[in-house]
Design a binder for these strands. Structure first.
Lengths: 276, 276
DNA sequence: AGGCGGCTTTCAATGGTTGGAATGGTATTG
DNA sequence: CAATACCATTCCAACCATTGAAAGCCGCCT
């Protein structure tokens, strides 16, 4: 061991493969490793998925744990910590809307006894902020904190319809990716649908996977009239006719909007556009 | 040691006042600036509260924004981002318990129509994980994501009673800080109370501030029999007698425990202790 | 006009950061 | 029981991301 490494290879001593990334980015990439499927991870798993040497990962993780962003379990694995959750609960578009909307979601839930969903848009997807579900409601694909596509869900269509023009165009241009259980929509039809959503304040979609359901969604506006969130219910297909549900959903969404300082305009056809 | 022994004249071009803190700690201290009262902050506010020069803060914040931990508003201020909220929603002790408990909380809420609370312990405080409240329920002091004391709330007493011995002793030793609206409890009485909580599975507290209320709380156990959370309801004093509420709360808490894999023991007097 | 506060960019010095190597530990296999 | 494999942790010297004073901008108030 004390023997010199007899390297003929000249300098060779150090090649820094991928040094040079900002520390914060690395730390954040560690957080990003966690997902629905990966809620508790070992050091080496974290290091592997975040693509960095174990010692580096360990050092970073140690700091995160010290602060409370991560917590260490008895078995040595790491999970996301309560402290991080606490800070995150201050997110206006996360718990913020939720806090205001929750009572109305509850009302709606009590009437329908089926899934009630609340989502905001983040980039090209909808992020589920809240979901109320009875213990025996129909199976639903998305969980709180999870993401859903904009084009093929009612809750997503509402968000898309309320996004700024430029963003909508970018999405519309994209070729429709086929999602199982939802009828594919070409650009033309999608345009018409979005326009309808804006006019009626309602989006509706039928799915067959994972179960036969009907979703009805309606937009939530802030004081500036921008669409900040989307409220939806999901019921088994064939139960209550959608046209009965729509008014209830719209009413609930409006109630939340009013609480956010939104003043209903005379012309319902004019949405101001979200600024994000 | 590598430092040369005091070179007589360090040209002293720069004096680095407080350089030397790990980058991550600084970034996290930026996140920690956000609070219930400070949900949207300017760069200089962040820099000031996190105690670092503006350029440094700006650089760190830029990274956080790029990742989505923070978001920038139109007016230039920063808020906690949805992406962070998303990761945080994977926290087992945050949204984890919540997800499992929510349906039962809803049941309880529907019966009582008053506040239903769910909390876990973080260090020396209870962190509110969930709160269901009617639009017209009585005023309550704590918000989701906020913290409550262990000694002077029903929900906190349950968590304290379920904590490990060593921790309990540390808390018991501490002189009772007086909270307004709650009868002060000396060490002896507190000990007795905690023992009662363990025996009966119920904690109860009356408050007069911010309003006259009665709180009834009960522990939630995990598969190992440790107290991982606490479930509570808060009702106006004088409405329903607490001894009527207690069974409902206990039943709901037990239902959640069972869902976490807890097997009720023959002897109810024996709690295994939390490992954290 | 001038002053002021906040935001942003620049840049050279430097100390925190880095990762290969080595160590100790534990579970799995031959 | 040795051999193997994997994981977690400590060490350390080279090095590059990080740092913050300084200066430039912009908007705002007086």
């Amino acid at each position: 061991m004390t023997a010199t490494p007899d390297t003929d290879t000249p300098p060779a001593r150090g090649k820094r493969p991928k040094q040079g990334e900002p520390v914060i980015d690395r730390a954040l990439s560690l957080l990003a490793v966690f997902s629905d499927r990966r809620r508790a991870l070992t050091l080496s798993e974290l290091a592997r998925h975040a693509d960095m040497p174990a010692p580096t990962a360990l050092r970073l993780i140690a700091r995160l744990v010290a602060w409370g962003a991560l917590e260490r379990l008895d078995d040595g694995r790491y999970v996301v910590g309560v402290r991080l959750w606490e800070v995150a609960s201050l997110s206006p578009r996360g718990h913020g809307v939720r806090e205001i909307a929750l009572p109305y979601l509850e009302d709606l839930f009590e009437v329908t006894r089926h899934h009630v969903l609340l989502a905001v848009r983040d980039n090209e997807e909808a992020v589920l902020i809240e979901r109320l579900s009875g213990k025996d409601a129909t199976e639903v694909a998305y969980r709180v904190g999870g993401r859903a596509p904009l084009r093929s869900t009612a809750i997503g269509l509402v968000l898309l319809a309320g996004a700024d023009q430029q963003f909508q165009e970018a999405i519309l241009k994209r070729p429709p990716e086929d999602e199982p259980g939802v009828p594919e929509m070409p650009e033309g039809q999608l345009r018409r649908t979005l326009s309808d959503v804006r006019r009626t304040g309602i989006a509706m979609i039928r799915r067959t996977v994972p179960s036969h359901t009907v979703s009805v969604a309606s937009p939530i506006f802030d004081a500036q009239g921008a669409v900040v969130a989307s409220l939806s219910i999901v019921v088994p297909d064939g139960a209550t006719p959608p046209n009965v549900l729509a008014p209830a959903v719209r009413a609930a969404a409006r109630a939340v909007s009013r609480n956010l300082g939104f003043q209903a305009q005379a012309s319902s056809g004019m949405w101001t556009h979200s600024r994000r």
